[in-house]
């Protein structure tokens, strides 16, 4: 089958890909800006004691723990879940990158390496999505903490990944439309949903790092204090 000819795309696909998709991005930026503004309206916890540790180092450590599963005792014992977590999030990043680069550089995206690379992550994202969904449904502990929004987001992301597998070869307008339909829907829905955690992450990790760094708790495993003159 041949690649999609860009100028032959139907008006609906064009509308979603070139207009609604970017409108969604704009909406998301505005919505998040407002959300962040709202958060900063809350007073911050005050800290006036002299520090015992290094704030900067601790804040860096706080962010870095995301890539250091051995620093989290529970992740250390569930490496499989960490790998799943990492691959799933990389797959999401590939999906977003694919959606935004394609309208601007469709010829470049026809490169077989890029298609293969994207497809690989769409497949991984899809499989991990199913595994995570199964875990949410079958594990009583996970079921207990799952809201309808949690299920909805995960199902939709998994479907999006599935549409990505079909759309990545760039040979079917229908699949491409489905892929952009999901991507666009997400841009409008995400600011309302639990997926927003990726934005809050940057703020909360800063505060957590600063708080524990101040007390010399982060980076974990305190170092010996210097000898004072008694």
């Amino acid at each position: 089958m041949d690649y999609i000819v860009w100028k032959d795309l139907g008006p609906l696909t064009r509308l979603v890909m070139n207009q609604l998709h970017y409108l969604g991005l704009l909406f998301m930026i505005v919505a998040y800006s407002y959300k962040i503004y709202q958060i900063f309206q809350y007073p911050s916890a005050k800290e006036g004691t002299p520090p015992r540790g290094d704030h900067q180092k601790a804040i860096r450590y706080s962010y870095m723990t995301l890539a250091m599963p051995w620093e989290l005792d529970t992740q250390k014992h569930h490496m499989y879940r960490y790998v799943e977590f990492a691959l799933f999030h990389i797959a999401m990043a590939v999906g977003i990158g694919f959606a935004f680069i394609l309208p601007m550089a469709h010829e470049f995206m026809k490169n077989s390496f890029i298609i293969g690379f994207s497809k690989l992550f769409f497949v991984l994202g899809f499989l991990i999505g199913i595994s995570r969904l199964a875990r949410r449904v079958y594990s009583p502990a996970m079921r207990r903490i799952s809201t309808l929004d949690d299920y909805f987001c995960l199902m939709l992301l998994t479907l999006w990944m599935f549409s990505g597998i079909l759309a990545a070869p760039l040979k079917s307008e229908l699949f491409l439309f489905a892929y952009y339909f999901f991507a666009t829907f997400f841009l409008f829905y995400v600011p309302f949903s639990k997926i927003s955690h990726y934005v809050y992450f940057f703020f909360i990790k800063y505060y957590v790092g600063k708080h524990f760094g101040h007390r010399g708790t982060f980076p974990k495993k305190g170092s010996m204090p210097t000898v004072k003159n008694v």
Binding site: I39, S139, S146, K194
Partner: peptide, 26 residues
């Protein structure tokens, strides 16, 4: 009484369950 750090802790939870095994009660 909710402050900024509380709000972030409320909002950032993705219900991922990573913390489940950290709690001795569970």
């Amino acid at each position: 009484r909710t402050n900024r750090q509380h709000v972030l802790s409320f909002a950032a939870c993705a219900h991922c369950g990573t913390c489940n095994d950290s709690c001795h009660y569970f």
